[in-house]
Design a protein around this nucleic acid. Structure first.
Lengths: 133, 133
DNA sequence: CGGTATCCGGCGGGATACTG
DNA sequence: CAGTATCCCGCCGGATACCG
């Protein structure tokens, strides 16, 4: 039969859309800044460079795995630099690049929006929850 | 033993931090806009109101479940309104509130950053991947 | 100190089927 | 048309252990 089922069509559409999203700069950036640890790392580094273990302590509750993973992707994207000083013991510093600093400014804009409209969102939630019971 | 292990201390820190993040407006907002479908719904509605099934078609590949879930949370947060017209068949329109429109402007800022710096990020990635082999 | 490697449990979300 | 209900799988990320 010539049946292209609705499911098949949606799967097809989803595949195309996923491909589109993978190439979409905005979506890629959202994936980046939405990561739980990325915002924390970037804002921790905004005032100045920091060592690996300092970051680990500053960002309480992060596991080594996630900290490293986060730092690697940010380094790959050119948002921060990783500098190894081959002393004993070895010392590794992370610092924002200009691009990273620029991103931290964008995050500041997000933060401002959040703080400005938080009350409004909160009230909307209480209203919604009351109505719905 | 009196050992408070590193693991225990990290778990404690993580619990506190999670609580802190839950109450943090910025983090809540990031959770919201980072959701895969939220940005798509908000930008789809930016030009004007739309019906449920129109949104479903416009945002290719979204399942009914996720579309409804996304719309519900956005409605709860006061970012959009849901209007039921009890005709036959019923008609439901979704429209951004002023707050939602304001959020869409923030998303535009994110989009602008993404498009402005995409090349730079892309070059950084290629450089990183080349160096690392 | 600054990581890497491995295992594994929870849950987000897709597929599928049904309803007012 | 506009959803709801259920099952279930993939994968994210935490815990743990080990290395240069």
């Amino acid at each position: 039969m010539a049946t292209t089922t609705a499911a098949q069509r949606r799967e097809q559409a989803r595949a195309e859309y996923d491909a589109f999203l993978k190439g979409c700069p905005t979506n890629q950036l959202l994936d980046r800044i939405s990561d739980k640890w990325v915002a924390l790392v970037v804002s921790a580094l905004a005032p100045g460079p920091m060592r690996y273990s300092d970051l680990g302590r500053r960002i309480a509750g992060v596991s080594p795995k996630m900290l490293t993973q986060t730092l690697r992707t940010l380094e790959r994207d050119g948002l921060l630099t990783r500098t190894v000083t081959p002393s004993v013991p070895v010392r590794v510093d992370y610092a924002l690049t200009p691009l990273g600093t620029s991103l931290s400014l964008l995050l500041t804009a997000v933060k401002d929006w959040a703080e400005t409209h938080f009350d409004e969102v909160h009230r909307a939630r209480e209203h919604y929850d009351t109505e719905t019971g």
